[in-house]
Write a protein that binds this DNA or RNA. Structure first.
Lengths: 208, 208
DNA sequence: GAGTCTCTCAGCCTTTTGGCTGATACGGCT
DNA sequence: AGCCGTATCAGCCAAAAGGCTGAGAGACTC
């Protein structure tokens, strides 16, 4: 059986060489290229056509991981893409899977888990770290959590620390309307105070 | 000249092997041990007495990096400790330097930067990544922003969305005291509402 | 021993927030 | 035409948060 070719994408050199060393212990896995950015990743995929792309979502400058996944899948469906990232945010998971990622691993995954995820990805199996899976599951179980555009807008401003009055002014609506929207947002997020709403919003989304 | 002995501390195996591979390219740097937790790090220091400890601050379970730095410095001052972490939060930098770290590098630092930081640390020089340095500088310029331990504790709970009453219960203090602390925190953070305090706290610190 | 910092608590008053009920208007879907 | 989701607004009331002043206890420093 011919070896599985892998492209590593991460803006941290240390993580790339760590992964390279780790995968090097497996005779059937060959790292054939590395990339430090989304743009570079697309070039390498074009040139080398790896079987699997192992990608970090958080990339310093330029195109982010999600966008890179989407573009790679757009022009070439033969690669399996595995997300390999440090932090797990609900929004990222959903967006990555949506963009076409085959699996989602956290960086503290056990080596065996990583190997089998790569091997599985080639065969079309999707793998995810247990904590990731449970989050995704929860996300899918609560479809009522989807905010309307207006609510999302409000929530976003809410995380800037604005008061109801300021929110109203900013959105050209009355304070009464602000309160109505907030009540709906709280219900959907499952919280009771604006403080909790802000906390969950910032932590859940990549809002920073 | 005898080589510089190094202990790597990081809960991610991938980062450890990446660093090991990277440092392996330098004849004068010898990685003599690795540790995946604060506790383990202390044991390794005791056993092997490395010249330099390269440590990640964010460690999954158990003792965190800051605490590990403090304890290592307490019982043995001959090690130089270098912080090597992914994210830079203002509070972490101050706390790490306070605990006795000789330098503070971000994981996307260039290899040369890492090497020279390690070599410099042995000679008592402190090194930090430019973005880190500028943050620290800013922090020192605003000394009024430094929260007391109790205030930091409160702020941390605040970001979970607790009410004043809940905060009081959790910390075994009256609601009146909670309000006093909050007023001080708001003043130091330059905000006027708990919402804004939560927003700035979560975004500024690495609180997730 | 006086000054400073930190943590603790109280009372009083204003503003803000949140819960509830009910209402109008617009657009899309059946 | 009727229904539903979304966005808009109002009034009322209770709870929470925030501003202010004042104050005592313990620790640490000069």
């Amino acid at each position: 059986m011919s070896p599985i070719t892998v492209l590593l994408v991460d803006d941290h050199l240390v993580v790339r060489s760590g992964l390279r060393a780790l995968l090097g212990t497996q005779p059937d896995l060959h790292v054939i290229a590395e990339a430090a950015s989304g743009e570079e990743a697309m070039d390498r995929v074009q040139e080398r056509s790896p079987d699997v792309v192992v990608m970090d979502l958080a990339m310093g400058a330029g195109m982010d991981g999600i966008e890179a996944i989407r573009r790679i899948r757009e022009r070439n469906r033969s690669q399996a893409i595995l997300v390999f990232t440090t932090y797990d945010s609900d929004a990222d998971i959903v967006r990555a899977v949506d963009a076409g990622a085959m699996g989602y691993l956290l960086q503290d995954a056990a080596p065996e888990e990583i190997f089998s995820a790569i091997r599985g990805a080639v065969q079309g199996k999707s793998v995810m770290s247990p904590p990731v899976a449970s989050r995704l599951f929860q996300q899918l179980r609560n479809p009522e959590e989807i905010l309307t555009p207006r609510e999302a807008e409000l929530l976003s401003l809410l995380t800037e620390g604005l008061s109801n009055r300021e929110l109203g002014r900013r959105l050209f609506i009355s304070e009464a309307t602000v309160k109505t929207h907030l009540a709906h947002i709280y219900a959907k997020l499952g919280v009771e105070t604006r403080a909790a709403a802000i906390a969950t919003a910032i932590r859940r989304e990549g809002m920073r």
